[in-house]
């Protein structure tokens, strides 16, 4: 095993081009487990901790450019307003120690269906900034996950940043685990209201081979909200709409039975989380809506 220590992003890209099998390591929260337990013996380990700008973020007009290695703890602390869904998701990641090291780049690189960030990214809308010596490209998050622990990165590419849309409305995130802290998701659900476009986006974790959106559920809800004039009148969402949305979210799952839970439970739980997060976000939207109305 060789340990590569690129001092700059350019050096990292060059090293990755030269050694496409090199495994990037930043927070180490996935890679080191695999090494400690003898599941992986990469030829090259490439430390990204020396590259300072991977741990930086920039808040733009429409989106946040989040460096691949920004630790979850920083997201929770500094980006709660801009990225509320991801901030909530970050808070559910493992333990304080892990949140101090792990970041979204690692979650995307590993592309485990159980990664905590994915549902929040899917719901908010995001693009992955991937780069190689051949150039840089932005991969829409919807196209990023290609299979179980597989992603759209080319062998010579590294994740530099993620561009996540700033919240234009309430976002929520829920995750089920069999413990009240420090737990890998049995399943997870992210929901973002986008009042600007009058759309709703979702993200489901750990209930299909890859993180997925509940497309049909989103379409149903978008139509129902539009039809009922909900965005304008700020009424409570009718229970039947919420239930139908929850059922469609559950139906969007394609889960398996494993040691963490049954397929049947995952489907059920995603439905419950969908309904609850819809209620929470919509209540929050109504609250804001009323405040706006009152002020006007």
């Amino acid at each position: 095993m060789d340990f590569l220590r690129p001092a700059s992003w350019e050096e990292a890209l060059a090293a990755k081009a030269e050694h496409p099998t090199a495994v990037p390591i930043a927070g180490g929260t996935d890679v080191m487990v695999e090494i400690n337990f003898d599941h992986r013996r990469p030829e090259y380990l490439m430390d990204l901790n020396r590259i300072a700008d991977l741990e930086e973020w920039e808040v733009g007009e429409k989106s946040v450019r989040l460096g691949a290695s920004v630790p979850y703890a920083k997201i929770m602390e500094h980006l709660r307003a801009e990225l509320p869904g991801l901030a909530l998701a970050s808070h559910t990641v493992a333990s304080p120690q892990i949140r101090n090291r792990g970041g979204v780049g690692g979650n995307l690189g590993t592309a485990s269906p159980a990664g905590d960030a994915h549902p929040a990214l899917l719901a908010a809308g995001a693009e992955v900034e991937a780069e190689s010596v051949r150039g840089s490209r932005r991969i829409p998050i919807d196209d990023f996950y290609t299979g179980v622990k597989r992603n759209a990165l080319a062998p010579d590419e590294l994740i530099r940043a993620v561009h996540i849309k700033k919240a234009d409305g309430p976002q929520q995130y829920s995750k089920v685990g069999t413990r009240n802290a420090m737990v890998i998701a049995v399943c997870a659900f992210g929901l973002a209201l986008h009042p600007a476009t009058r759309t709703v986006r979702t993200g489901i974790g750990s209930a299909a081979p890859t993180p997925v959106r509940a497309g049909t559920a989103e379409e149903f809800l978008n139509a129902a909200l539009e039809e009922g004039g909900f965005w304008d009148n700020g009424k409570i969402i009718t229970p039947s709409v919420a239930k139908r949305f929850a059922d469609l979210c559950a139906a969007a799952c394609n889960p398996i039975d494993d040691v963490r839970g049954t397929a049947s439970y995952r489907r059920h739980a995603v439905g419950v989380m969908a309904r609850r997060t819809l209620t929470w976000t919509w209540e929050s939207y109504r609250g804001a809506h009323r405040t706006t109305e009152g002020a006007a």
Binding site: T92, Y173, V176
Partner: peptide, 16 residues
């Protein structure tokens, strides 16, 4: 949420 079932995973705000 730290004092509710699900804890930090934010699964309930009292529902159920």
């Amino acid at each position: 949420v730290r004092q509710l079932p699900g804890g930090l995973s934010n699964t309930t705000h009292g529902e159920g």
